[in-house]
Amino acid sequence: MKNESRQSIMLGDVEITRVIEWAGPLGPARNLVPGVGAEVWKENEDWLSPDHWEADSDRAVVALQTWVLRSAGKTVLVDTGVGNGRERPGSPHFHHRQGDFLGELARAGVRPEEVDIVVNTHVHGDHVGWNTVAADGGWVPTFPNAQYLVPAADDHHFGPGNAYGGGLREDDRLIYEDSIAPVHHAGQVVLWDGAHRIDEHLTLESAPGHTPGSAVLRLTSGTDRAVFVGDLLHSPVQILEPACNSCFCLDAGQAAASRRRILERAADKGELLVPAHFGGTGAVEVRRQGQNFALGEWAGYVEVG
């Protein structure tokens, strides 16, 4: 995989451009998805390595990325990565990170002032970081003309109403204060619950479990279908083992139920599955295999830039 690369694909009338903030080995594979045994990784090494698993070190390979959708005359960002200069003491990979994400967006043809809608699939630090940038000793919205769509349940859980995720992690307070609260103060946040229609092609739908407000974004255009699933899946081994959650899922039962429901529909409706953190091409078709699922074709892109 290449860091900070871009690829594009057309689904119906919607152009999807992938902008990668960072990609590479992260942590031990079975720490990321504890329920998946070593034998599953080993049995699937031929396709998991090197894009999804570094076999020698037994580390999961992931990507931090934003999906840029050009739909119905608007520019929509799905998740905004980690951001620069953040205090993240509980997340060493994100702590004080510096990168050229805005430069990568520009090279993909996106200027901050041209973004119409920002979708945060959930309020975790690697999905909301570029909501804001540092300015005058504080934080201001990166995308000054955008409407930020934030799940209401996550805004409550991670915000002051629920004392920043119940006060379990200091990072949750820091994330809310530097990446969500400033957008509220600017009057650019729209909270939603259940479902929210963006345009004739794009609809948000609640899929709780990973977080209370975790969401998916459905794309329908002509005969093409896709579903952007955020962190319902961190690794493609979860397609093979859909009952297995990541170590970051807050409600294990809800997360597994949401994952199975989304995979079932993706398989039955022919939706391209687009998770937040898959390596390789980042998106894959899903097939039924008895009571479970198998991987179909990976997405094909045209390189940009």
Rank of each mutant, 00 (worst) to 15 (best):
K2W: 11
N3M: 11
S5C: 08
M10I: 06
D13E: 15
V14Y: 12
E15D: 04
V19R: 07
I20Y: 05
E21D: 08
A23Y: 01
V36T: 13
N44V: 11
W47A: 07
V61S: 04
V62H: 13
A63Y: 02
Q65F: 05
V68G: 00
D79S: 15
D79C: 11
G85I: 04
R86F: 03
P92T: 07
H93G: 01
G109K: 12
V110K: 08
P112R: 02
P112G: 03
D116T: 03
T121F: 01
D126Q: 06
A134S: 14
A135W: 12
D136I: 02
V140E: 12
P144K: 12
A146D: 03
A146E: 05
D154E: 12
H156P: 01
G159Y: 06
R169Q: 14
E170Y: 07
D171G: 05
E177N: 06
V183H: 08
H184S: 00
Q188N: 07
V189I: 14
R197W: 01
I198M: 05
T203K: 14
T203M: 13
E205D: 08
A207G: 00
H210A: 01
S214Q: 15
A215T: 13
G230K: 02
L233P: 00
D251F: 14
A255L: 03
A256N: 09
I262A: 06
R265W: 14
A267T: 10
G270N: 10
E271G: 06
L273G: 03
A276H: 15
Q289V: 04
Q289Y: 05
Q289W: 07
G290V: 08
F293E: 00
A294V: 03
W298M: 04
A299W: 01
G300P: 02
